[in-house]
Write a protein that binds this DNA or RNA. Structure first.
Ligand SMILES: [Zn+2]
Length: 687
DNA sequence: CATACCTCCTGAGAGC
DNA sequence: TGCTCTCAGGAGGTAT
């Protein structure tokens, strides 16, 4: 199975129990496999082998063993199907087990580990530690680890000159980069718009830089997801990865390209196939095939040498922030949701754009140290930005100084929960909505707001009607009403808006904060709140308040509706105001709902049919007056400029910002693409 | 030498 | 149903 992320997952899983364990016996079950016999005999001669560490190099797993006879390395290569699994001896032995390892773990418990390898290509060998550093082993010839591959691009251009092999063959050669295989080569090449058959010698210096950056990001992202689990592959603890759900090209031969719809093809490389999209490739196999009109028609870049912005580039243009009064910040998943990269595409997860009087956007800078910022808000107390970072396991709260020369946030604070997607601030308190964990993290800002500390996590629980999306709580939005009476939390997973009386909550948090102990997790049942219940399966997502704070409007992601909440009631009921946008019968997943600065209109973004709905407010009700195409694909967020004349739309899947002009009657027009930025997820315009 | 092809295996799924 | 065919997370060996 495994490529680097999967072998790394195997390593982590094995290390949990094997590190500091003792290897008691290695039993070969196949007398006919000479390699296994050799390992068994070798280990028989070593008494009392302590397992110091489990390492990984490329796709090799290395058990580091210490014994009175010296140090040894058990070097394992899983090839296609080899892997270890823990065995319960009361159960029958699974098929294709070729060896067993008896151990005594650090707590004195015996364990039996099986080596299973259906196709028998995997290898196990025992080497004296010295031979790892010197011998002729292939392990010694491996190139740099793919997840930290930072090549000297100029040297590669020089080295490849005059050679003919394809870039796919080059990447698969473990002596160039270690750890890549068919999956990640396929995905990385598509992300770079490279045909697998392109000769490696055709790559320019920026091409190599971009390719290596994409490879690093891809592998790190895949590792955070536990790798790819195809068919029934599991790690030694039975765990599955989830990156296979994000394969865009691999395993989709003859299906439609997720980026352009063209039927995917494949190229034979080294006896197997690497998929690709014939239309998305920007660098064809041979230069003479690149017809100018074809390239123009496709809107792709004119020259491969044209510099491409990636997340490691510091400044996009030297223009400084203080020259312009309006600034649009775009947050999102720029580092990882990758694309065939048209010219001018900004791939940062947080970027700043100056807004001219005519509404044009000019990139000012990126923040390379910020990853996956799913939501960004201003700190009302100063000039800082507050954001949440939706990273693999533990989410983070970020404080960013947009004026700083540094690309790194001032602070990145663990929020004790996963998948944050929204946040709000009230004085020195920050609350994050954690979609992944279904919780609210409460953090206290330091006096200068340049640092923060996690004080408590309020954990929701429950589920609702949609088995795929509502198997548990998924807190999607948090906010405080204009009168500062309640902290509202919209939970998509349990079909409810919860409102926590703010003064009581803050009092409790202040007490916890003063105690200066580790942040506790509070069951939401133990924190006073009202529960505003939605119809089953609606999946409430985002909310806005009417200007007087008496009324709330909630858009539901699963039901595609807008609901009104009369917040002056002791227990508000929800009132259905109709479709958020699009049409009945379409698959629509609304994302944003925003109040226009005139206080009389609402805008909704409709993912699916890619529309924007405009509502006119009339007291506690709202009526939809427009249902327009958003100009892009998958409108994830909207933002009204402060003067109310412009509405920005972040199109996550077409990687662009579209712009609408807002008339005095609240209707919008336009939808032209004004900026290319990869996977935008949130917008914030400040003056 | 660099590069393309073949091989070592078993099982799953498609097509007939 | 069963049969044949192709393909699968890899890499080492062998012809050109
Ligand atoms: Zn395509």
């Amino acid at each position: 199975m495994p490529e680097l992320p999967e072998v790394e997952q195997m390593r982590r899983s094995l290390a949990r129990r094997l590190e500091h364990a003792h290897l008691l016996m290695f039993i070969s079950l196949r007398p006919g496999f000479p390699d296994l016999t050799t390992v068994a005999l070798g280990l028989e001669a070593i008494r009392d082998a302590a397992i110091r560490r489990i390492d990984r190099r490329g796709k090799y797993l290395i058990w580091r063993l210490d014994s009175p006879e010296g140090s040894f390395a058990l070097v394992c290569h899983p090839r296609m199907t080899g892997h270890f699994l823990w065995h319960d001896e009361t159960q029958p032995l699974p098929p294709h087990i070729h060896a067993m390892v008896r151990i005594l773990d650090s707590s004195g418990e015996p364990g039996l580990l099986l080596w299973q390898d259906v196709r028998r290509f995997g290898t196990l060998e025992l080497l004296p530690a010295g031979r790892l550093e010197t011998g002729p082993h292939a392990l010694l010839r491996l190139g740099p680890e793919a997840d930290s591959w930072r090549p000297d691009a100029a040297a590669l251009v020089r080295a490849e000159r005059g050679r003919r092999r394809s870039i796919a063959a080059w990447l698969l050669d473990q002596e160039n980069v270690a750890g890549l295989g068919a999956i990640y080569v396929t995905e990385a090449l598509h992300a770079c718009g490279l045909d697998p058959a392109t000769p490696a010698s055709r790559l320019s210096r920026p091409d190599w830089q971009r390719l290596s950056a994409v490879v690093r990001d891809l592998l790190r992202w895949a590792q955070a997801r536990g790798g790819s689990s195809i068919s029934d592959y599991v790690d030694s603890d039975g765990g599955r990865g989830s990156f296979q759900l994000e394969h865009r090209i691999y395993g989709r031969y003859r299906e439609a390209c997720p980026d352009c719809g063209t039927t995917l093809g494949r190229r034979a490389v080294g006896g197997r196939h690497i998929g690709y999209c014939p239309r998305c490739v920007r660098l064809p196999r041979f230069r003479h095939l690149a017809k100018q009109d074809d390239i123009r028609h496709r809107g792709r870049i004119e020259s491969v040498e044209k510099p491409v912005c990636d997340s490691s580039s510091e400044r996009i243009s030297p223009m400084s922030a203080q020259n312009t009064s309006r600034m649009l910040y775009v947050g999102g998943y720029g580092g990882r949701r990758i694309d065939p990269a048209p010219a001018g595409l900004v791939t940062a997860s947080l970027s700043a754009w100056s807004v001219t009087d005519t509404g044009e956007l000019t990139p000012v800078r990126t923040f390379a140290g910020v990853r996956d910022s799913s939501y960004v808000i201003p700190d009302p107390a100063g000039d800082l930005l507050l954001a949440v970072q939706e990273s693999g396991r533990g989410g983070r709260f970020l404080i960013v100084d947009p004026r700083s020369d540094s690309d790194d946030p001032l602070a990145a604070v663990n929020i004790g929960a996963g998948g944050p997607c929204h946040l709000t601030v009230h004085g020195s308190w920050v609350f994050t909505a954690n979609y992944g964990s279904g919780s609210i993290s409460c953090l206290r800002l330091a006096d200068d707001h340049r640092q923060a500390r996690l004080v408590a996590v309020i954990q929701h629980s429950g589920s609702s009607a949609n088995p795929g999306r509502q198997e548990g709580p998924h807190t999607h939005w948090v906010g405080i009403d204009p009168a500062s009476c309640y902290l509202y939390a919209v939970d998509l997973g349990i079909d409810a808006v919860l409102r926590y009386p703010l003064s009581a909550l803050l009092e409790r948090l202040e007490t916890l904060s003063a105690a200066d102990a580790a942040a506790p997790t509070l069951d939401f049942a133990e924190v006073r709140h009202d529960r505003i219940v939605f119809p089953d399966g609606e999946g409430p997502r985002h909310m806005v308040f009417s200007p007087d704070g008496h009324c709330g409007f909630v858009v539901t992601e699963l039901g595609n509706r807008v609901f009104a909440l009369d917040l002056t009631e002791a227990l508000p009921a929800v009132r259905d105001l109709g479709l958020a946008g699009g049409s009945e019968g379409e698959a629509n997943y609304p994302a944003a709902i925003r109040l226009a600065p005139d206080g009389r209109h609402l805008a909704t973004s409709i993912r699916g049919s890619n529309r924007i709905g405009i509502f006119v407010l009339d007291g506690a009700t709202a009526t939809r007056i427009q249902n327009l195409p958003c100009g892009g694909v998958w409108p994830r967020d909207l933002f009204y400029a402060a003067d109310g004349r412009t509405l920005w739309c972040a199109n996550e899947q077409s990687h662009e910002i579209t712009r609408f002009t807002v008339a005095a009657d609240g209707t919008i027009a336009g939808g032209e693409s004004v900026a290319r930025v990869s996977a935008p997820a949130c917008l914030l315009e400040v003056l």
